[in-house]
Write a protein that binds this DNA or RNA. Structure first.
Lengths: 215, 215
DNA sequence: ACCTGAACACCGTTCAAGT
DNA sequence: ACCTGAACACCGTTCAAGT
């Protein structure tokens, strides 16, 4: 029953499967060895230590990420479509995004998207440092949004606090300004959980509108 | 040499110190016990398991966070000042923010800031669901930005990829649109590392301008 | 060149036993 | 009510030894 000889590629494949199916927490060297039917120590020979294994894994999926193409008529709509594409790609790799983030590779991951954003920003008439700022603002916005969003999904017991907002601030100092006097629709809207999809589009569009208006 | 009896408060204090000085990774039950001069198992009696200890720790510092007051003349400037305050508070607890984030408490952490934002958004004339969207958009923007920013700081080997953007896309398909034809200032700006402080203010101001303009 | 088991230094957690 | 040590089931990593 000699197994096919272990390769670096096979190790990465098994590791990726483990992460995909059971999350990054399930990726232990010993469990991986079990999955591969080898001794733990063999893995070290092929991919170095655990940290290097994770690096390779991340590198791999970053390169697998597809290009992002703009769609829409106005530059603002095209920027929004690129942002939506970035978000979609991030969300398609729910486990990886955290690992990419921890490794500081989020920007490299979005080089193609950056290229697309540059084109749109220039089409809107922005040049030089101002154009660069606009591109970066959108990139930060998108990545940041997805990070917050993903976290929100993982721990759904978020909203209880949001209701308190409308009770009198009991323990707090009296210098807290009175807010939302007589706007029950606002209060209700904030009490409801946010619709991330809508909020995302709305935010990116607002940001893009303001930034591109300078062109 | 009988030590003063162990209390829940003492455990939390020691744990907080450990995190503050050596990061969350240093907070192990055994090391904590060592620091306190007790058996590991005593900790369990006082605070439950490690997860509950972290919960309590986070809860603690979330409540310690000060109120945030708006400053400035226009609603936009006042929103920007609140956002800056949120960012400052987050950055003052560099280790905690990750823990808060993982526990999905970021929003609760910012209830006072939300109250301030509601006031400004209403001052700009927004009402109901539209006002709620504006508030949430800013909140997401700020928290997301700080998350991305913090990650960037932790792994400074980020920029190498950004240079590649301006080389001909060698391996990539020919369908990649040509970008930034003849804008060396843009290329240079994107090659330089971003100035987060500037980018933050710029982004929040742009977002606030567009959102508040609807009022 | 590739794979192995043994060993080291860590983890979090449970539990029966002490006072 | 509070604290303890022993024990269990895990970790990542090193290393000398095998083929």
């Amino acid at each position: 029953m000699t197994r096919s000889p272990l390769t670096r590629e096979a190790v990465l494949e098994a590791a990726a499967a483990l992460v995909r199916e059971h999350g990054p927490g399930a990726l232990t060297m010993r469990r991986l060895a079990g999955e591969l039917g080898t001794a733990v120590t063999s893995i070290y020979w092929h991919v170095g230590n655990r940290e290097q294994l994770l690096d390779a894994l991340v590198e791999r999926t970053v390169q697998d990420m597809g290009a992002i193409r703009a769609a829409g008529r106005t530059p603002v709509e095209r920027v929004v479509s690129v942002a939506a594409g970035m978000r979609r790609e991030l969300r398609e790799h729910p486990h990886l995004i955290g690992m990419v983030h921890e490794r500081g590779l989020t920007e490299r991951m979005f080089l193609p998207a950056q290229r697309a954003l540059v084109a749109e920003v220039r089409a809107a008439g922005l040049r030089g440092a101002r154009a660069a700022d606009a591109v970066r603002a959108v990139q930060f916005q998108v990545v940041g949004f997805v990070l917050v969003e993903r976290n929100r999904e993982r721990s759904p017991v978020q909203s209880p606090g949001e209701g308190e907002l409308w009770d009198p601030p009991q323990g707090s100092a009296a210098d807290a300004p009175a807010t939302a006097p007589g706007d029950p629709a606002l209060a209700r809207a904030l009490a409801r959980p946010a619709d991330p999809e809508r909020l995302f589009t709305l935010s990116v569009r607002a940001l893009a509108e303001a930034l591109l208006a300078q062109g």
